[in-house]
Structures are given as C-alpha cells and as structure tokens.
C-alpha cells in the first residue's frame, strides 16, 4: 500500500488529507479518486501535478508511473499563489 497525500482544493473537495491506496500506477490512482469522489473532483485532477517519492510527474508520461508499495504520493491541483 502507498500513502497518498491530497493537497489544497483536493482536501476541500474530499474532506481528507491522506489515505492508503493499492493503486499500481498514477493513472489508476487518479481513476480511484474519481470513482470514490465522483465527477466533481475531475476538474481538480485535470493537469494536476503528482509527486511520487520526491519525483515530479506530469502529463501522459507521468500517468504511467508505477507506484510501489510503501511509496509516498502527493497530488496537487494546479493552483497558484505566492
């Protein structure tokens, strides 16, 4: 199982900060989130940035990234401030 951390608007939308997942790839992980939280979450996952064990993944290539048991995955909606 991997630890999944949700951030900013994903926390607001789902009400959770982290959970455990057995998804095998980033793509599966995002599908799992859509399934659990419905279509309303889709806009936050579109173009989101995923960090798996410290490495940043974006785009189609990023979706294929495998998630190993024990990994830490952070998902950021594409928001900005600063």
């Amino acid at each position: 199982m991997a630890t999944v951390k949700l951030h900013t608007l994903l926390v607001k939308q789902t009400g959770i900060r982290d959970y455990r997942s057995s998804a095998g790839t980033v793509s599966e992980l995002l599908d799992e989130l859509k399934e659990k939280h419905g279509d309303s979450i889709e806009r936050y996952l579109k173009n989101c940035i995923v960090i798996v064990d410290g490495r940043k993944y974006e785009g189609e290539k990023g979706m294929r990234k495998k998630i190993k048991p024990g990994s830490e995955v952070s998902i950021f909606p594409r928001v900005a401030g600063g």
């Binding site: 951030h7 900013t8 608007l9 940035i49 940043k56 950021f76 909606p77 594409r78 401030g81």
Partner: peptide, 22 residues
C-alpha cells in the same frame, strides 16, 4: 478558474504546500 478557486479558498498561501514540495 481553478487558480481563482484556490486563492479564494486558501489565499495566496495556497502556494506553500506545493512550493515546499518542489
């Protein structure tokens, strides 16, 4: 706009979680 929604929900400090991670 997603950025506007983020700023409305969390202010400019919406940036710190992602900022620290990169």
């Amino acid at each position: 706009n997603l950025i506007a929604e983020g700023l409305g929900a969390y202010g400019s400090n919406v940036a710190m979680e992602f900022g620290m991670s990169i």
